[in-house]
Each structure stands twice: as structure tokens, then as C-alpha cells.
Design a protein around this nucleic acid. Structure first.
Lengths: 125, 125
DNA sequence: GGTAAGGTTGGACGTGCGTCAAACAATAGA
DNA sequence: TCTATTGTTTGACGCACGTCCAACCTTACC
């Protein structure tokens, strides 16, 4: 009945709490992306936009669902992603427009860097 | 007399240990730059190249010298900076060429992002 | 209503980080 | 040679992080 008693409970179609554009801190963004798991999610959301949170289909099957939830929260609170509650799922999307507005070119450079590293790793083994 | 007995002791003109270009990890770089102090140093080294390690003149007078030394080590081991022992000083420089070779455009985007954030902060107060 | 599935929360555990203080090494200058 | 300076290393402390587990709340489907 959506009484919203303890902690926080998502409501149909509601956007989970996230910082405003002007409150996005570069240090927080970089700190969020400094973790391999979150960098992986970042890149996944960039290519597969409006990605359903198929925690298993993202190559994170080895992680506990609460761990994934934790990483999602960090990304969202850093202003990197935006999460909407749809049914009992979460639709996660990269806040690319907001990030581009605040830090022009940063997302593109980070994605290119991630791709470059992956390519270099793939070549040497 | 340069006996190099315990731990590690820098020698005249010697380069302190740092990763090779191909061993620079994006996650480590972002993690290093995810700390406000190190982001400050990063930007300082980018503008004031071959910066002498005037720990006080870098706006870090409030930090203990061992703390600054720690941050320097993190940046160096992440592959962000390169440190050379000159007399009893350290000449620290951004490894811009190496970073540009491995992650094209990343340094420029990070510097622009840092400048943009600083400008936004300055405007709202 | 009852049951299963998807996510969040809280606690617990081990590990690492940021900071300082003290001890030390090497150089520069007297 | 003695002393001051510069920076590293080590240890200590508090705190935050990444991970898992257990409990819980919604929503969806019988």
C-alpha cells in the first residue's frame, strides 16, 4: 500500500534519489569509476542504454545481488547513472547529457580509455 | 655513501619506480585522481610542469610532509606522474606523453573537467 | 491469499585508505 | 665535521570500502 515506513521504498515510476547537475563532483565521479566493477557497469550502460538490471547478464554473476545494488547506489549518488523503478525492476541509464553538460568530453574520453585498455589487454594475451 | 641498505633510497638523478606504459591501469589512474588532494596535485603538475616539490607552495601547507609523500607515491605508482631525485629535492612531472599514448584525450578531458568544476564553484559563491 | 522473484537495507568481516608522528637517510651548507 | 633541510619509511589510528549473508519490502503471478 506504499506506506513508505522504514528506510526507503521505491514507488512505481519514481526516480531514485540522485544529485542535481550542479552538485555532481568530479572527485566523486572518478572515485566511482575507480572501481573495476563500476567501470564495467559504466561501459555497459554507455553502450546498452536503458539497460535492464539483469545483474547476471552483465557479467557480474559472481557477485551477490546486494553487492551489485551497492555499486548501483554509488554510481547513482555520484551522478553517473539514473535509476527508475519499473515494476520490480530498475531501469538504469547513464546520465550522459548531464555529465556532458557539466564535464564536456569527459564521458567520451573515459569510454575511449576503457576501450583502449581492453584492446591492449586483448592483444597481449 | 649510497649503500642502499633498507627499504629504498633514491640516488642522484635516479628515477623513482614507476609502471611501464602498458602497465598503466585505467582503474588505478581514476582511483588516484578520485582523491581531492591528488586531483589538486595533478592539475598543479599539468600547468606547472617539472614542478619542484614545494609541498607548502602547492596549497598543501596543512598536510604533513609524510602525507604528501604518500600521495606522491600513489600518483607515481598509478603511472600519473614521474619523479626524479635531484639533490635532496624531487622533480615531479606529469607523464603526459605516456598517458596520451595509452589513453588519448583523457588527460585533456580531466583537466578541462577540473577547470569547469572550479569555474562553477567560483561562480556560485 | 499464498508464493516466488527482484532489490534494498542492515550488520558483519577483512582490507585498504588518509592522516599524523617519530625515526631515519641523504644531501647541502657552515 | 657538524648541522639543517628534504623527503621516505614505518607504525598507529580512525574511518570508509567491497563483499557476503540474512531479513525485509514490493511487485508479479498462481
Amino acid at each position: 500500500m506504499a506506506v513508505k515506513q522504514k528506510g526507503w521504498v521505491p514507488v512505481e515510476g519514481e526516480l531514485l534519489p540522485q544529485p542535481d547537475i550542479q552538485d555532481i563532483r568530479l572527485a566523486k565521479v572518478l572515485n566511482a569509476l575507480g572501481d573495476p566493477v563500476r567501470m564495467h557497469l559504466f561501459r555497459a550502460f554507455a553502450t546498452d542504454d536503458q539497460c535492464d538490471c539483469d545483474c547476471a547478464r552483465l557479467g557480474l554473476g559472481h557477485l551477490h545481488k546486494s553487492t551489485v545494488s551497492h555499486h548501483m547506489r554509488v554510481l547513482r549518488e555520484a551522478g553517473v547513472t539514473s535509476t527508475r523503478a519499473v515494476g520490480r525492476n530498475r531501469h538504469v541509464a547513464l546520465r550522459r547529457a548531464d555529465l556532458d553538460a557539466r564535464f564536456p568530453g569527459l564521458v567520451e574520453a573515459l569510454l575511449a580509455a576503457g576501450a583502449a585498455e581492453e584492446a591492449a589487454e586483448g592483444a597481449e594475451r
